[in-house]
Design a protein around this nucleic acid. Structure first.
Lengths: 208, 208
DNA sequence: GCATGTGAAAATCTTCACAGCA
DNA sequence: TGCTGTGAAGATTTTCACATGC
């Protein structure tokens, strides 16, 4: 299976596997079978084996399972998480602040290295070793080797923020603004709309 | 197509359509074609027409398009957003606070009607008309007609929080904790792991 | 002409089932 | 025996293409 195109869905699941593996590792486990990992994550075991098989030999041992540390390393390599990634945050409102404080990015090797806002009240303030800069400074990102960004600006500023980021050489954007943003093909955007995810819960709930 | 099972993917897109339609409505538009809406959202036009067709007649007019207000009403009805939904928030940390302050829930008819935490320092404090309660009060949710919940507690408290919510009659959970939670089939869980979404960006970026 | 609504085809993704190995 | 790795089958989702209606 080594030479095929990797399904997007497989890529989407790799961080889930990684999370489960780190958890099991913390529990002191050395090895894990696809069935164990599946149970831990609510995923079908064949799915896991199939996903792994796209990348060639994941070093699973029949009768035993996979070595957890090895697996984590392989996944890191595939996801290109084996170097520290510097990311910028644009829009230091409530959500932006929560994200700056969020401890979860570290375990993926992310370093939120800069924060930007448009409000003079916020510019210059210091949060967690980061001084909030004016958005006009976005153009310095390239020089600073920052090529990932998180957008937490209001909806109507989302597209222009994305445009500025693209101009500054950013290649990946995590967008929390509830608006579709258009970028060149070479830039990857992942949009998270918190309210939208909540919005489909009622559909699945019978009665009222 | 009226009597078929609706694809999950279609349900996932309905809130996206709704968002685009509200935006176009704000711009003063009355009608929209599948092609216009598609352009606005980055989705294929046939996809939109197919999605709509699952629900029977969406009242589109050949040569003209769809009436925006009518469409929004239909989507609201399908997603069961035509009544105000009361939701509880559990875990008033940074992310929880940001979500309490997030203005985006209102446009879907959500009312975050209660907040809970385990820390005595936070219990009793008031945020936006909501007094933070002790998690032991979760069992009152049924009486208070709250059947949706947002979990923003640390990873290791996620499962026990979910258990308490299920016991309290909650039927839908939006989970921000980076951990899989197991619930009975009648309860729907949607998990958002912010860091995990960021984690797959580097994969799509060539070079370093 | 322009746009909907939808069968049918194509693409994608998931699950099965089993050969092969420790 | 227990588990991996994977072709093949099955299920789901997307896209095409066009008949039909304004």
């Amino acid at each position: 299976m080594r030479y095929h195109k990797i399904p997007d869905e497989t890529i989407r699941r790799l961080p889930i596997y990684r999370r489960g593996l780190l958890f099991l590792s913390e529990q002191g486990q050395q090895n894990v079978s696809s069935r164990n990992l599946a149970g831990c994550l609510g995923i079908n075991p064949s799915q896991i084996r199939k996903d792994f098989s796209y990348f060639g030999d994941f070093g699973g041992t029949p009768g035993v399972g996979y070595n957890i540390q090895k697996l984590i390393k392989q996944i890191n390599k595939i996801l290109k998480l084996n170097v520290v990634r510097r990311a910028a945050l644009v829009g230091v409102g409530n959500l932006g602040l929560a994200i700056l404080a969020y401890p979860g990015f570290g375990i993926y090797g992310f370093d939120i290295a800069a924060a930007f806002d448009i409000s003079p009240k916020k510019i210059g303030r210091k949060m967690k070793n980061i001084t909030i800069e004016d958005v006009s400074n976005l153009r310095t990102l390239k020089k600073r080797k920052i090529n990932l960004a998180i957008i937490t600006v209001p909806r109507d500023a989302a597209q222009q923020t994305a445009d500025a980021l693209v101009k500054a050489g950013v290649r990946g954007i995590l967008n929390f603004s509830p608006h579709h943003i258009t970028v060149p093909k070479k830039v990857k955007v992942i949009t998270i709309d918190i309210a939208m995810d909540l919005a489909r819960l009622p559909y699945y709930i019978p009665a009222g």
